[in-house]
């Protein structure tokens, strides 16, 4: 119950911030809206929100683009990107990509869970795109040290097509056993 309240209050705060964002000018001002949810110091206000500080520019841009086109659905983000141009989105992506990835102090996964993650990698080849150490590059996101609950939610959303802007990830998650997703999230969060 406490967790639900926390999500709810986080969402309300974010909504308020979005509503208050009238015509900002500089990229720093535009980025203030983002801080309401993704954190003023890069640590998101809710466990299911992703770290965007230090994430790759190409990936951040593509996601903003997809929120705007509706390919990726999220009411909050749809409102945030509604008036952004391609240049705005690219500039915001560059702004956050230059920030330092925050340390969320998530624990390393136990060996048994790491073994599951390694088996998943052998099967579907995660590091073929996300690269060694799951650091990503350009349009492929960093996964190492990402928020645990966001990782798990994303994998499940890809699997159920609730997140439909990357059918390749949907296919890979559907080829992965549901039971393997939680150990995978533990492994990536603590990696």
């Amino acid at each position: 119950m406490r967790r639900k309240c926390s999500i709810l209050s986080g969402t309300l705060l974010c909504l308020a911030a979005v509503a208050a964002s009238a015509q900002p000018q500089t990229v720093e001002q535009k980025a203030e809206v983002c801080a309401a949810c993704h954190g003023a110091k890069g640590i998101p206000v809710d466990k299911t929100y992703p770290v965007i500080w230090g994430q790759h520019q190409g990936y951040l841009y593509l996601e903003l683009r997809d929120f705007k086109s509706g390919a990726r659905k999220n009411d909050l983000m749809t409102a945030v990107v509604a008036d952004l141009s391609r240049d705005d989105m690219m500039a915001l992506a560059a702004y956050f990509a230059k920030k330092t990835w925050p340390d969320l102090r998530q624990k390393s996964a136990p060996d048994a869970e790491a073994a599951v993650a390694n088996r998943v990698n052998v099967s579907i080849g995660c590091t073929g795109c996300h690269l060694g150490q799951y650091q990503g590059d350009a349009t492929v996101p960093r996964l190492a040290g990402q928020q645990h609950d966001y990782l798990l939610k994303s994998m499940r959303d890809f699997r159920s097509r609730a997140r439909a802007n990357n059918p390749g990830m949907t296919d890979l998650m559907k080829a992965t056993a549901e039971a393997d997703l939680a150990p995978e999230a533990d492994f990536l969060a603590g990696h």
Binding site: L62, R65, D66, A71, V122, S123, I124, G125, C129, T139, N165, N166, P167, G168, M169, D171, L172, K174, A175
Partner: peptide, 13 residues
């Protein structure tokens, strides 16, 4: 999906 991997499925080892 415009600029993202488009396999139309998956190959799994």
């Amino acid at each position: 999906p415009n600029g993202k991997l488009w396999l139309g499925g998956a190959f799994a080892v």
